[in-house]
Design a protein around this nucleic acid. Structure first.
Lengths: 338, 338
DNA sequence: CTGTTAGCGCCTTCAG
DNA sequence: CTGAAGGCGCTAACAG
């Protein structure tokens, strides 16, 4: 391994001078800089991060925690997409990103502990937001920089987070259905432990209320679509005497399941029933019919959270903030008018 | 930050003793060990990785390179799933994983350079296998430990890789179609630059040959399903005078697109046409009909590659090997008999 | 503008 | 069984 000393020796200067050249210190003569740089090239010198981190007490690395993968939800294309967004910023800022994807919450917790105690990373991004999250409490208590993608359960003003306005998104997409003449609209969401679900659902209800439409308990379903229970729930919904004519589904991937359940039941979308959902992942335009869905700009969710986190790690007194990424309805073919 | 010295001071021993306790050195008396460990707990001591790496010249971290995300293929649920597999091993072995997901190949290359030159990681996993890959050449040249998930283009016996037997898988799944009475079978695959596509396609052809069925050029399509061109290609296939009765699609995600194109064209699966594919990602059981597909054990692909890589980094003269993960056909509802 | 010195936190001889 | 000393590669005062 080529070190700073080797370069120094070859160039005939001291190690510290080389170090200064690396940092592009202005007090070094252009001449020496040139000379040193040339030597670095020739020797194939590259600074050793560990040594540098050791003295700098910073790692230029951020940790990313995925939800514990017990929930198969991890196969959601949402994740590669946020990672891409985060990666774009880390790359640009010359940071690196350390991923933690534990099977269980305990595993994730252990990894986070390692990351912060071992100073593996300067800050952490949480790719989920659950009620009463141990990891979040830990990070807060340790005053370790972190941001969450989504909306924190508590201390909402004391935790930097990047989110969509899911309430409004839910409201708007439901309103779209209403505008198309629908009056009986159901909601199918994932676990209520997740804040996204709650917000989107609240928006849905609000739209109904504002349009003076009834909010019916039996039009509300929460399922994970892992167990076949999901399908049964949908089947039950559709066997109601007064069947809904439209459904708001809280996630594109779930929509896929809903779509096929509907088809099994012999219902055509959008002729017999309309469907809208959220995320606008790649597959939402590949279903048949293509989904009318809310584009939440997943990539931006990742990029902005990385940016916010890095800023935070750089100056400890950066204020906690809330960053809302705009959303937009993408109109496709899963909605019919009445 | 609590250091080894603090622990030493409190315990009344020397720093080196503490260091030995950490390493669980057998030459330390049980008594001192107990004492030191207690102090570590109380002070909340955790070793600093950077300091440790600096002297150990090892990072206990592996780098994972995703394909450049220009191809939207990144939204394939394949990726979160391999990452899960890798993560299970890194966690278990107390390693960390650094992710690189560049927009372009250049970006990825730059990141890899950083990783190896800066000694960020001890080894690298490549999550793709493309012909003439710069990154792979670089790694080989530098003799830096790496393994690839998939099959290398060249030097196949000199590069450790973890793959499925995609040829056989392609053959078997095609044979299944043939057994069900199909004689006119088409193949829709992704880019031929990717080895998976080639292998699966070769298996498909071989099955046809062995059954004395014609291999028709116009039954072969390569597309990425990003451009609407994909749909056109399928449409063209189906407008052939002699239409295929079965299609082998090289990836579940693509199948989704094929499925909806078929539906648009008014064809029912499996009544009018049968469909099989590969990967068995979560969504393959959520389509309608659910897909008959080859389970390639993505999770294992990830886990085994991590395991192999870590072994390699531990002993430089670990032989290069090829690890084949078994596959299995999952029978669902997308195939009909003739 | 540049060299010298010290030290980041840890591990590893080498003594004892 | 344990301590002292030196060094991993780099940076940051402090001198000049």
């Amino acid at each position: 391994m080529v070190t700073i000393k080797d370069v120094a020796k070859v160039t005939g200067v001291s190690p510290s001078t080389v170090s200064r050249v690396i940092a592009d210190n202005p007090r070094i003569s252009p001449d020496t800089k040139k000379k040193v740089r040339k030597a670095m090239k020739e020797l194939g010198y590259h600074p050793n991060v560990n040594a540098r981190n050791l003295v700098a007490k910073s790692t230029k690395a951020i940790g990313v925690v995925m939800p514990s993968s017990a929930d198969k939800a991890l196969q959601n294309p949402f994740f590669p997409e946020v990672l891409r967004g985060i990666g774009s910023i880390t790359h640009q800022m010359q940071y690196s990103m350390t991923l933690s994807s534990g099977e269980t919450e305990d595993e994730n917790f252990a990894e986070v502990e390692r990351m912060v105690y071992g100073s593996y990373v300067d800050g952490i991004i949480l790719l989920y937001s659950r009620v009463n999250d141990r990891i979040m409490s830990f990070l807060r208590e340790k005053r370790f920089p972190f941001v969450i993608v989504g909306k924190p359960h508590e201390h909402i003003n004391e935790i930097t987070h990047v989110d969509n306005d899911n309430f409004t998104a839910g409201k708007e997409i439901t309103a779209h259905l209403i505008n198309e003449g629908h009056e009986r609209i159901a909601f199918i969401g994932g676990s209520r432990d997740l804040f996204v679900t709650r917000d989107r659902e609240a928006g849905y209800e609000n739209a109904l209320l504002e349009a003076n439409l009834a909010v019916r308990k039996d039009y509300l379903i929460h399922t994970e679509f892992l167990k076949s229970g999901g399908r049964e729930a949908v089947a039950k919904l559709l066997s109601l005497e007064v069947r809904p004519t439209g459904i708001v589904v809280s996630d594109d991937l779930m929509s896929l399941g809903v779509l096929s359940t509907l088809e099994e039941l012999g219902l055509q979308v959008p002729r017999d029933i309309s469907l809208v959902s959220f995320n606008n992942v790649y597959l939402s335009e590949m279903t048949s019919p293509a989904l009318t869905t809310v584009d939440i700009q997943i990539y931006q969710l990742g990029a902005q959270s990385a940016k916010a986190l890095i800023e935070k790690t750089k100056s400890k007194d950066e204020p906690e903030k809330r960053i809302i990424i705009p959303h937009q309805i993408i109109y496709r073919d899963s909605v019919g008018s009445i």
